[in-house]
Design a protein around this nucleic acid. Structure first.
Length: 316
DNA sequence: AACCACTTCAACCGCTTTTGG
DNA sequence: CCCAAAAGCGGTTGAAGTGGT
């Protein structure tokens, strides 16, 4: 009943891939493309047997390859190729810029690893997922930020850090800037031809937003700003703004923009934004600038020292 | 040196979405 | 339009590596 598993054949190999298997897969895909993943293992082994003879013993070795070389299901082949063997994959540790980008994108997209990965050339969804689960999530927790919602813990969180550390403030600021930009884009019909009142972003809306001029300007300005770049940890006692951004709805002109978020944990995100900076249409430009300015109030120029600080805290 | 606890990450599992007949 | 197969995706697992005692 139901769908047949992708690899019903018994005796298919599992576990780590060997160099021989990698070689077969790479050679085959480079020559033919992957086509159908399901039939690839058989075709690849056969192809190697028929055309890749490099020594007098090849007929025998080829036969062995055919029998034992790629006893993998297509799914396993696809995973191996997309996560490890693809030539455009960037190996090595994540840079601070990449980590920062992952955090920002996660705040927007939630656990949509593939969507996040599409914004980081050479990185795979699996890699980003691992980075998040092993490093970034813990860091946010240590900072008193809920990794699911990117909101500060209200009480009883894992730390006694002040509720509105600058880093968490940034999350709220980014969120407000995001919604501000969303409202602005909606008004300008940048992405939607439908009437503004029926605006209902699709799941990739924020990704497009991120790639739009507005998102671009966020990133550029974030990279250019220099002044007042204090470590959020050292700023922990500074005044808070994020308390004022939650719990209120936003109404930009005639456009009601709720917390419309893509399918993710964020759908239960209670954050709605204060209309105070965008309640009337003729204020929208100013408020956008304000939101942008707020966004800039975050560690920049690769200053992720606060993350390292958190690591230090965590190891104590 | 041996043991244990913890971390990392490649790979698997199972569910959802897309595609094609 | 329906259904099955294939592909895609996110969550989870477990072996290998590392650090501490």
């Amino acid at each position: 009943m139901g769908r047949t598993p992708c690899c019903e054949r018994k005796g298919l190999k599992k576990g780590p891939w060997g160099p021989e298997e990698d070689e077969i897969l790479i050679n085959y895909i480079n020559k033919h493309g992957h086509g159908s993943w399901r039939s690839l293992p058989k075709l690849a082994a056969l192809w190697k047997f028929l055309f890749c003879r490099v020594s007098p013993l090849q007929p025998i070795k080829g036969l062995i390859s055919t029998l034992t070389g790629l006893r993998r299901c297509g799914k396993s082949c696809r995973l191996r190729w997309t996560n490890y063997l693809r030539p455009d994959i960037k190996r090595g540790p994540f840079t601070l810029d990449e980590e920062k980008l992952v955090i920002q994108l996660h705040a927007i997209l939630g656990n949509r690893w593939a969507a996040i990965a599409s914004q980081l050339p050479g990185r795979t969804d699996n890699e980003i997922k691992n980075l998040w689960n092993t490093h970034l999530k813990k860091r946010l927790l240590c900072m008193g930020v809920d990794p699911l919602t990117h909101e500060p813990f209200t009480s009883g969180g894992p730390t006694t850090r002040p509720r509105s550390s600058p880093a968490t403030r940034h999350m709220a600021q980014w969120e407000s800037a995001r919604l501000e930009a969303e409202a602005r884009l909606s008004k300008e019909s940048l992405f939607f031809n439908s009437p503004p009142t029926s605006v209902k972003p699709d799941p990739d809306f924020f990704l497009r937003l991120w790639n739009s001029e507005v998102g671009e300007s966020f990133r550029k300005l974030n990279g250019e700003a220099k002044a007042d770049c204090r470590s959020p940890i050292s700023q922990a006692s500074s005044s808070t703004k994020c308390g004022s951004v939650s719990g209120v709805t936003i109404d930009v002109g005639s456009i009601a923009v709720g917390s419309s978020t893509p399918k993710s944990s964020r759908t239960e995100d209670p954050i709605m934004f204060d209309a105070s900076f965008s309640s009337s249409s003729n204020e929208s430009e100013d408020s956008s600038d304000t939101a942008l300015q707020l966004l800039l109030d975050f560690p920049i120029n690769n200053d992720m020292s606060f993350l390292e600080d958190v690591d230090t805290y965590a190891t104590r």
